[in-house]
Amino acid sequence: MSVLEITDVSKIFGAVRAVDSFSLNVADGELVCLLGPSGSGKSTLLRMVGGFERPSSGRITIDGEEITHLPPEKRPTGMVFQSHALWTHMNVFKNLAFGLKLRRLPAGEIKDKVEAVLELVGLAGYGTRMTHQLSGGQQQRVALARSLVLEPKILLLDEPFASLDQHLRERLREEVRDIQQRLRITTLFVTHGQDEALALADRIVVMRDGKTEQADRPDVVYREPRTPFVAGFIGTMNLVEGIVSNGVFTRSGFSVPLAAADGPATLAVRPEALELTPSASAGQAKVHRVTDFGTHGLVDLELPDGARLKAMVGHPQMFSNGQSVDLKPTAIAAYRDNALIHRS
């Protein structure tokens, strides 16, 4: 059953349609990532669910109850902000207890709830600390705890790890995923980091210009991107513009059999799906640069017309700059007019 239903929601700022007729249903306990570049409308959408922006049109319901025009304080949602937004004049306990006090809970119950949630986020005993005495990661945990302590129906996370370093980000996202699964709390998570989305989400909604490009499980979004935009945005992807003629895609000496009508097309090949074989003759491409990552290598290739491709190889030492190679894609997709025309 859908807990959160967003139906045909738009948000217009002046001449800009930040969110454009967007619809999404989120199931109970599901973690959905809204993924997209800056300006794609994902944060605006989240803020509309939280009540901080009023939709220009459309409808938002939680558990079947319309909340479209309710102010934030009347919504059963809990928001974690990118900047933590902790109240610096209060200690950790008071930050967490503030919302509970507004609900007029007895002091003993407030204390128990705050201590339980601090334990949950790994900050037991930190209640008396002021927020400036905490590290960035601890501050973000307090922000998460502040939302969780109120047991919201929907947890909203607005790029919560964006201000943290890579190592901490990876650790915290695992912790958040653990907590979310333990509590089975329905979560809407905004990020522009594809790794974060792939690691966390039950479902990824890729957004562009306020609209959904694709909404699927992470593995499907990665392996079967429906548009060239999604193909290019998730993971590393070679996108090659070329011509299909008589069942063959061609671009500057590089050709691949492709079952599609004649005409222009964009070929999408993942670096790990591009096999290289050293060529004794001129070859289809030349090695431009080889990067050895230890476990694997990444080979930058140049087609005769200067177009660039990347290939992942198991033994980078087999290749050297300037070497001629032949290319053999093992999995391809092709797009025309922003639509998928071939996958094999």
Partner: peptide, 15 residues
């Protein structure tokens, strides 16, 4: 004053 702080307060139920 960071507007997000005020929004966070609205979010936890403050008018």
């Amino acid at each position: 004053v960071d507007r997000r702080m005020e929004e966070a307060a609205r979010d936890v139920g403050a008018k």
